[in-house]
Amino acid sequence: MVGKALGLLVLLGDEPRGASAADISRRAGLPFSTTYRLLGSLTRDGFVDYEPDGRRYHLGLRVFQLGQRVSNHHGFAGTALPILRRVTGRTAEATILSVRDGIHHLTVNKVDGPQTFRVTSDPGHLGSLSATAVGKVLVAFAEDAEREHLLAELPLERLTDRTIVDRDAFRAEIEAVRRRGYAVMDEENETGMRALAVPVLNAQGYAFASLATAAPVFRLTVEGLEAHLQVLLEAAAELADRLPQR
């Protein structure tokens, strides 16, 4: 039952506007009575909030509290945040820190730029490893055996008309990322957005995180992003020195 309850929390995490018990039951593949009982227990313990007017469930503050503890433990808040703010101060664009979570990247921190157009990859966001700059870096600089596994098995979902969905082309892209030391996303994950990412490397030379600058296409060309490469590399080296390495 614990696993089922945790599965419901994961499903709710994909529903920023909340979901009804019937919707959650259907998505979880559980009987409605089981889902309703589990949601009641999670609500009583503060892991889930219930909105009576819309009869919808949302993640509760208890989840946020635990998430903040994890973030602080790994240094993503106190240690990393000032470095991300410094990068954004120099680039005037959003700075994103991500780690790998299975076949996704997980955004663990982000600092928005001063411009009015926001990047939507907020902390807690799970995204594609194959279609994003941060994801490509995490694949390219994974441990050798893990990289080969991802190259062979990672789902290549088409998100835009520029997403790489051919297995050989994806392998070639990852090899190019390893050669040049950074990855670019040019509207492959989201139409109208570009990003450039570099690895945050452990002592063995493998990425335990990735750091990116992201901007809308109308504001920065690929060459404009690449002009910020040295800023990102310096920040990634500082993060590698200061963050606990997983």
Rank of each mutant, 00 (worst) to 15 (best):
L8I: 08
L9P: 08
V10K: 14
L11C: 09
A19Y: 02
S20N: 09
S20L: 09
A21Q: 12
A21P: 14
A21Y: 05
A21L: 08
A22E: 15
D23C: 13
I24W: 08
R27F: 09
G29Q: 10
G29C: 10
P31T: 09
T34E: 15
T34M: 13
T35E: 07
Y36L: 14
R37V: 11
R37D: 14
R37S: 15
G40W: 07
G40I: 04
L42W: 03
T43L: 07
T43R: 14
R44W: 11
D45R: 12
F47T: 04
V48G: 03
D49Q: 12
D49P: 06
Y50P: 05
Y50V: 07
E51D: 15
D53I: 14
D53Y: 11
G54K: 09
R55W: 05
R55P: 01
R55Y: 08
R56T: 03
Y57M: 02
G60C: 03
R62A: 11
L66M: 07
L66K: 09
G67E: 04
G67W: 00
Q68S: 13
Q68T: 09
Q68L: 13
R69S: 10
N72I: 07
H73L: 15
H73E: 15
G75W: 01
G75Y: 00
G75L: 02
F76W: 06
A80R: 03
P82G: 07
I83K: 03
R86A: 14
T88F: 04
G89E: 06
G89F: 05
R90I: 08
R90V: 08
T91R: 05
A92R: 14
E93K: 13
A94Y: 06
T95A: 12
T95E: 07
T95R: 07
I96S: 01
L97R: 01
V99P: 08
R100N: 03
R100P: 11
H105F: 12
L106E: 02
K110C: 14
D112P: 08
D112A: 08
G113A: 04
T116S: 15
T116M: 13
V119P: 04
T120L: 14
S121V: 10
S121R: 09
S121L: 14
D122N: 10
P123K: 03
G124H: 03
H125E: 10
G127F: 02
S128V: 07
G135F: 00
G135T: 02
G135Q: 01
K136T: 01
K136H: 01
V137A: 08
V137N: 04
V139M: 01
V139A: 01
E143R: 03
E143S: 02
D144Y: 00
D144L: 00
D144C: 00
A145V: 06
